[in-house]
């Protein structure tokens, strides 16, 4: 009995401790087996990173630096081979309901209407259909797609599909939102618009977000902190806090300070590709 309460006291304390920190990655190492070569490939060597509640963190790095692999591990889709990963103090062992992922491809089920695509994830969790539809409707209006509920994905443009993808992730009401280069496949204009939209949506429901990108100005525009990874296997090269007030809009992209950040991050990445 006494032991029990002691144990629970310890966990409560740990929870309280972790309340401010959503995601804790401690010396995370990720290795996976490549069937083609028959060898283990070290994708992430050592990442230690803490993300606070309501924080927006972007990870940039040269291609092949393991940034997407790291995100997969956080999402619980990939096992990390070393170190610790925890969300709200609970270790991440597999996909869980507290985080949602927005992948680069919209990956909408072509045979489902937009609203049924948005409900897809929570339907899998057994949320009653009526409630799921109501929640989805609200999310669809939040991402600005009201009126498109009964359309099919192929009737929507790439940017709109990506909004549906975002709505599908947000409707699950996650503690942590993971975004894996969600705008990489969009054209430049749509991309800028979507960045702005994402900030608006994020501002509105204050989620904690981890955003992977290879575009430097996207990272600066969105993030509270930009994490620069070294070339693979991934290690953190530098973490740069972005000091712009929120809400932000496109004008900051022409701010001299913005360009300074851009130069600095670009220099860091260039260093990596020259090595």
């Amino acid at each position: 009995m006494a032991q029990n309460s002691l144990a629970s006291a310890v966990t409560t304390e740990r929870r309280l401790d972790a309340a401010k920190n959503k995601l804790i990655a401690n010396r995370v190492q990720i290795e996976y087996f490549v069937k083609r070569t028959g060898e283990y490939h070290l994708a992430v060597e050592d990442i230690t990173l803490t993300i606070a509640e309501n924080e927006f963190v972007c990870i940039v790095g040269p291609s092949g630096c393991g940034k997407s692999t790291f995100l997969s591990a956080v999402a619980g889709l990939l096992k990390h081979s070393g170190g610790n990963l925890s969300l709200d103090g609970k270790p991440i062992t597999g996909p869980c309901k507290d985080l949602s992922v927005v992948f680069q491809s919209a990956a909408l089920l072509p045979w489902r209407t937009i609203i049924r695509n948005v409900t897809y994830g929570i339907e899998l969790w057994g949320v009653p259909k009526k409630e799921a539809l109501e929640r989805a409707k609200k999310m669809i209006s939040l991402v600005g797609l009201s009126g498109y509920e009964q359309r099919y994905p192929h009737e929507l443009s790439g940017g709109m599909q990506q909004r549906v993808n975002l709505a599908r992730a947000l409707v699950a009401d996650p503690q942590l939102l993971l975004l894996d280069e969600p705008f990489a496949a969009l054209d430049a204009q749509t991309r800028e618009m979507m960045q702005h939209e994402l900030l608006r949506i994020w501002q509105e429901n204050k989620k904690t977000a981890l955003f992977i990108t290879h575009q430097i100005n996207e990272a600066i525009y969105l993030a509270d902190r930009v994490v620069v990874l070294s070339k693979g296997p991934g290690r953190i090269k530098e973490i740069i806090p972005i000091d712009f007030p929120r809400p932000r809009d496109e004008t900051i992209k022409r701010d001299p300070k913005f360009l300074e950040y851009e130069d600095r991050i670009w220099a860091l990445i260039k260093e990596e590709s020259n090595e």
């Binding site: 619980g76 597999g94 996909p95 869980c96 949602s100 992948f103 899998l124 969790w125």
Partner: peptide, 17 residues
């Protein structure tokens, strides 16, 4: 599309689902 399967996995879908 394997991306669809990845989405389902991220939502913790069972093989049957």
């Amino acid at each position: 599309d394997q991306n669809l399967v990845k989405v389902a996995r991220a939502f913790n879908a069972s093989d049957l689902q």
